[in-house]
Design a protein around this nucleic acid. Structure first.
Length: 393
DNA sequence: TCTGGGGTCCTGTGGCTC
DNA sequence: TCTGGAGCCACAGGACCC
């Protein structure tokens, strides 16, 4: 999808069409740009840019908060539409998917024709545009889509790997980020062609085991097929950046409790249990530290995970330091089998079920752990994890 | 005047067991 | 009985993606 969040906003609010639209954190806050319209990009605004910078570049822009529910509605509609063309649809993110149309050609025509039909149908149904890339691998298809934004259809073939692709900056390739780009530049390698040609021992000396992967990327090779089944998530987490830095341990404990509560609710909602609990703390120096603990068995009850998170915070020891972000995530996930809940004890299981029932009926924020609720009152804004919950009854 | 939140994947290190 | 290596796991951190 092109400028996805911003496009959805422009589609549902015609008065915003043709204007610079910036979707992301609150104006004057510590957030960043999640997405911006092409009209906003003219001013130099881009995703991940701090909001205060975007404001400075384009004070007349329309700054909107993230309305994830609205974007997910469009997302689900588009995924349903894609499923009409092939069973092999891999949903890569809220605004990206891969389709294997190898077996669809007799029914729907060549890939380019399929792409054009999808584009038209997405626009007719949702009023937003998408860019589609065609290629023999996911990597080349993604690259082709990126080169034809917005609203384009492009193709990269194996022949292009040693042709058109060679002049591209290495940073265009998915998987080569700013750090790798910088390291490659230090070796004098700035284009895909240079990365293809550099003697392998030289690359290996600089990147070790990563050298092989880099070479494969430069050749457009990705060996993973399009997978339609959604694997078990690897982790579930919540984190919050405070409006003002915090060094009050009680406040941090409360925030952590609130975040953990939200993460555990999602965990249970998905029928999962977790064995590993991780704490993340970012200090005002932007130095970030993590601590994690693996429990004896997977749990999904309300109590043990917040307790582990609180222990980790105590062990870390904030001292006199100021904290700007605190987060928690759980990993090592398994399906929440009956046996596991038995291990946790019937009281914990009953408590969790009761909490879930009340929240299902009256909204997530109808019921809160005391420490978390007190913290939310003391913070200017409640934890963002809660913002993604269904609206309260 | 500062730099989000949701994730995945990889690597180096160190402890433990065989 | 001691030692070194392999394999596994947990942990911490970092790069990267949208």
């Amino acid at each position: 999808m092109d400028a996805f969040f911003a496009s959805v906003e422009q589609a549902r609010r015609p008065e915003l069409r043709g204007l610079p639209v910036i979707v992301g954190g609150e104006r004057g806050g510590r957030g960043v740009v999640s997405a911006c319209s092409y009209e906003a990009r003219v001013f130099g605004i881009h995703s991940a840019m701090p909001i205060f910078q975007a404001e400075r570049l384009c004070p007349q822009g329309a700054f909107l908060p993230v309305d994830m529910k609205a974007y997910l509605d469009v997302h689900h509609g588009v995924v349903e539409l894609l499923g009409r063309y092939t069973d092999l649809v891999e949903v890569a993110s809220v605004d990206e998917a891969y389709l294997d149309v190898t077996g669809s050609r007799r029914l729907f025509g060549p890939p380019r024709a399929i792409a054009l039909r999808i584009q038209q149908q997405v626009y007719d149904a949702h009023g937003v545009t998408c860019s589609i890339g065609l290629g023999p691998t996911k990597l080349l298809a993604k690259l082709a889509a990126g080169l034809n934004k917005p609203a384009g259809v492009g193709e990269l073939t194996d022949a292009d790997v040693h042709g058109r692709l060679r002049d591209l900056p290495v940073g265009e390739v998915c998987g080569i980020g700013p750090v790798t780009q910088e390291r490659l530049a230090a070796l004098g390698l700035t284009t895909v062609g240079m990365l293809q040609d550099v003697p392998f021992p030289l690359l290996a000396a600089a990147f070790g085991r990563g050298a092989h992967g880099l070479r494969q990327l430069s050749l457009g090779r990705s060996f993973s097929p399009v997978r339609s089944e959604r694997p078990l998530p690897k982790s579930v987490g919540r984190e919050i950046t405070f409006d003002d830095d915090v060094n009050d341990l009680e406040l941090l404990r409360g925030a952590l409790l609130s975040l953990t509560d939200s993460a555990v609710a999602e965990l249970r909602g998905k029928g999962l249990a977790a064995r590993t609990v991780a704490l993340k703390v970012r200090f005002n120096t932007f130095h970030t530290v993590g601590r994690r603990r693996t429990l004896a068995r997977p749990v999904s009850a309300t109590r043990p995970i917040p307790e582990a998170a609180a222990d980790l915070l105590d062990e870390l020891g904030i001292g006199a330091r100021w904290v700007r972000l605190v987060g928690v995530s759980v990993s090592n996930l398994t399906h929440n089998a009956f046996q596991l809940t038995l291990d946790e004890g019937w009281r914990e299981v009953a408590l969790g079920e009761a909490v879930d029932k009340v929240r299902a009926k009256y909204g997530f924020r109808s019921l809160k752990l005391a420490g978390g609720a007190l913290t939310d009152r003391r913070l200017a804004h409640p934890s963002p994890g809660l913002a993604f919950q269904p609206p309260d009854a």
